[in-house]
Write a protein that binds this DNA or RNA. Structure first.
Lengths: 130, 130
DNA sequence: CAGGATCCTCACCGATACTG
DNA sequence: CAGTATCGGTGAGGATCCTG
């Protein structure tokens, strides 16, 4: 049991969906995994500026428990763990599309500042790192 | 300023949308107003079993501030205040549709208990209460 | 590299009492 | 009826240190 049992009685579908997406970084994790297919722990951490390891692990575990993400551990040294979306995670992401669009509209409407998460090409970054 | 300023920098559209829907009862309020068109304060309170007046007012104020709900005060005695969705609230509701469907699927999948919010006929309830 | 274990803070939410 | 004001609990989230 990872921090929360869930499965609790729900008022409606939105309630059930929100329960799964609730958490400061979950939708971002969903977004990251969706756009990259597969990501290592450290990659996710770099992709989500500001997240703490604790929260990242915790959210990842809950999402795994909820059947949204798949966690694959490679028994190598140094350790390597890869995360990816399950089919349910993918469908959830699709279901979030219209909400995302609405939010985009809202950002424009109220003129809020927007933070760019994704690295430009992920290739040039590699060059910088190396 | 009602409890929160928001407008904060967002990572993406989902983030901006979640910010507006965050709050234990907001999606339910949205749902109530969507299905009834217009509701008085006490009606909303009855429609959302378990909500406290404080939270209901607070959420309503925030949603008004976010341009989701419209608040109309009738200068009569006893006081009468009606809440309804603005066009943004309506479009948000529409954007939540697919998420709601996904949540419905999930409820079925995990076999979670579901609570019926809306009164069956609102007439039989009256009988039980009386 | 990928976490586990701890401590701490704050805002979310609930309950109660009072008012125009 | 439709709120306002206040107090207090709880847990999500954050910071830091430690480990296989």
């Amino acid at each position: 049991m990872a921090t929360s049992a869930r499965q609790g009685p729900y008022f409606c579908g939105i309630d059930a969906a929100m329960d799964v997406v609730a958490g400061k970084w979950k939708s971002l994790i969903l977004w990251e995994l969706h756009h990259h297919g597969t990501r290592r722990f450290s990659e996710l951490r770099r992709g989500l500026p500001g997240v703490s390891e604790k929260m990242l692990v915790q959210h990842l575990r809950e999402m795994e428990e909820d059947g949204l993400v798949d966690r694959e551990v490679y028994p190598v040294v140094p350790p390597k763990v890869e995360y990816s979306l399950t089919e349910h995670g993918i469908s959830l992401n699709a279901a979030l599309a219209s909400l995302s669009a609405w939010g985009g509209e809202r950002i424009r409407r109220i003129g809020a500042e927007k933070i760019t998460l994704d690295e430009p090409t992920a290739v040039e970054v590699d060059v910088e790192v190396g």
